[in-house]
Amino acid sequence: MRKWILWALVMVIVFLSLGPFLWFVDTSFKTEVEVTAIPPVICPSGSVGFYVSSIKNYRLLSYVKNSAIVATLTTLITILLSLFAGYSVARLGLPKRELFMKALLVVSMFPQISIAGPVWRILYRLGWLNTYQGLVIPYVTLTLPLGVWVVASFFKQLPEDLEDAAIIDGCSRLGALFRIMVPLSAPGVFTAAILVFIYAWNEFFFALLIMTRQDVQTLPVGIAMFQGQYTLPWGEIAAASTVATVPLVLLVFVFQRRIISGLSAGAIKG
């Protein structure tokens, strides 16, 4: 009996979180006629017409390219900086470390809107509005607390003897970091990287604020712009949303095992 309730709950949760996703994937393969049909058509005819149309008429590939560039750059820079910062934090004495970690947490909780104005002004002065770095730098700022937090908590768990051993074996400090500490924290680094990538890929607010020219806009903003003053190209939006979502799903599936071990923070005890 209890098992049934549990199952029912699981189904509800799965349906609620997966439902919208399945709906727009479904929709994206419909034809123009099927989209507006009442009652709704459940089984689409498998047309790729909306995909073709969203590429041809709505510059979908340009958005994908921009998103890929911005998200990749953000991830690389954030993770690299997180490795250095996380290493320093992990090697701090305890009271200082706790203070720093708490400060990071506080900073990461500032609402985005509170820094939007200053960020826009700075970028405006630098002439970096509508540039990749103009978006990547704020993203790095916003994702860095998460990255440092995850990486530091992984490094903290590694015995210092390992690093000392590497240094005696002839590594420099940087060498020990990249040859010993980073490989051993791979689950954590991957987890952080994927979370950062997803954030940058999905982010809407700053993207809208900073990227006003269509040729540099990212997917979330681009898709929102599909909607014209008098038109709602429902099928194209569904197709573009599918294109936006599938890479993330694949990413998570490919690294699933690493992420799970990452979220249950590294039991690396040899």
Binding site: P159, D161, A165, A166, I180, L184
Partner: peptide
Amino acid sequence: AMVFQSYALYPH
């Protein structure tokens, strides 16, 4: 060269 109490072998 040093042999550590914890062995400090590289686990990976």
